[in-house]
């Protein structure tokens, strides 16, 4: 496991558990990268628990690359008003991957902001599951939350299961959610081919476009991680 200064980047080779407790107005960015497990048959469990006091800002990005069996659990609780959490994830998974993500945003106090943005590119026999939860307590008015899951299936045996779950007891909140699962758009592939891109180059460019939303959000100092991701798109 490698930990560096801001942004905190964790290369998760084994299971890990990480607690982030942010005091009022504190800011933190955490990037977790998990890559092929190799011969290890033990499921990898990545667990991140965040607690945010008033005005705190937490940014988390989880990147999963290759063949992975395991779970990613992210559980964030808002304890003070005007706190913000941006959680994003990118999975480029293949082989016999079975990756399960369970992400939860607990809006216990008013006026907090949460975003969950995930993209999946799934090939071979890989399976990903994502339960994305947003829980808004009765007095947590003016909560602003959104979650989006977009998945591309690159092989007939690839599977994606996505379950956005909203549990809302307040009546003045924003809680958007959206999910899409599809394949590379054949008309877009043809469009690029008609501009002289080979079939392979066309598909790669479309994938680059697909993952760019997540990569563009990565903080400065993550060039190596971006490179790691782009190399996986071949």
């Amino acid at each position: 496991m490698m930990v560096s200064s801001l942004p905190r980047v964790i290369q998760a080779t084994d299971s890990l558990s990480h607690d982030v407790d942010l005091a009022a107005n504190e800011k933190s960015t955490l990037v977790v990268v998990q890559e092929d497990q190799g011969t290890s048959e033990t499921p990898q469990i990545v667990s991140i628990v965040g607690s945010l006091h008033a005005g705190a800002e937490l940014t988390i990005c989880v990147i999963s690359l290759g063949e992975i069996v395991g779970s990613v659990l992210v559980d964030v609780t808002f304890l003070g008003e005007e706190a913000r959490c941006e959680l994003s994830g990118l999975s480029l998974v293949s082989g016999k991957t079975h990756l399960k993500l369970i992400t939860s945003m607990h809006h216990d106090v008013p006026s907090c902001f949460s975003r969950q943005t995930f993209k999946y590119v799934v090939s071979d026999h890989a399976l990903t599951e994502h339960e994305g939860k947003v829980h808004v307590k009765q007095h947590a008015q003016l909560t602003d939350s959104a979650q989006s899951n977009q998945s591309l299936l690159l092989s007939p045996d690839a599977r994606v299961i996505t379950r956005p779950q909203l549990e809302i007891y307040a009546d003045d909140v924003k809680a958007a959610h959206g999910a899409s699962i599809g394949q590379l758009d054949s008309e877009a592939v043809f469009y690029l081919q008609s501009r002289g891109f080979s079939l392979e180059a066309a598909k790669r460019l479309l994938l680059e476009g697909f993952v760019s939303e997540i990569l563009d959000q990565l903080p400065e100092g993550c060039d190596e991680i971006k490179q790691q991701v782009l190399e996986r798109l071949v």
Partner: peptide, 17 residues
């Protein structure tokens, strides 16, 4: 009906083509 390609910069696309 030209196809939309989100996430791919137009200038880079033109240069690559």
């Amino acid at each position: 009906y030209p196809v939309e390609i989100p996430g791919v910069n137009n200038a880079s696309f033109l240069r690559m083509a």
